[in-house]
Amino acid sequence: MTGPTLKGQRLVALFLLGCLLFNFPLLALFTGNTRIWGIPLIYIYVFAAWMAIIALMALIIERKDR
């Protein structure tokens, strides 16, 4: 688990994805009055993106390579 392993690189890529998802301007796309099940879109978006990131982390870590 040293050096630039494939796992490590995937995690860094995920970090960059997270930085993109949780920042302007993507966030601005989801503000506004739109609602899903009565919940404002921005709340759904942030929590869904968050959960997705965590799920991907779990996938990267727990997946058995070869």
Binding site: L11, F22, V46
Partner: peptide
């Protein structure tokens, strides 16, 4: 969210 992102970099 910050710690979540940082967790991805913990590996390094």
């Amino acid at each position: 969210l910050g710690p979540t992102l940082m967790a991805a970099l913990w590996w390094y």
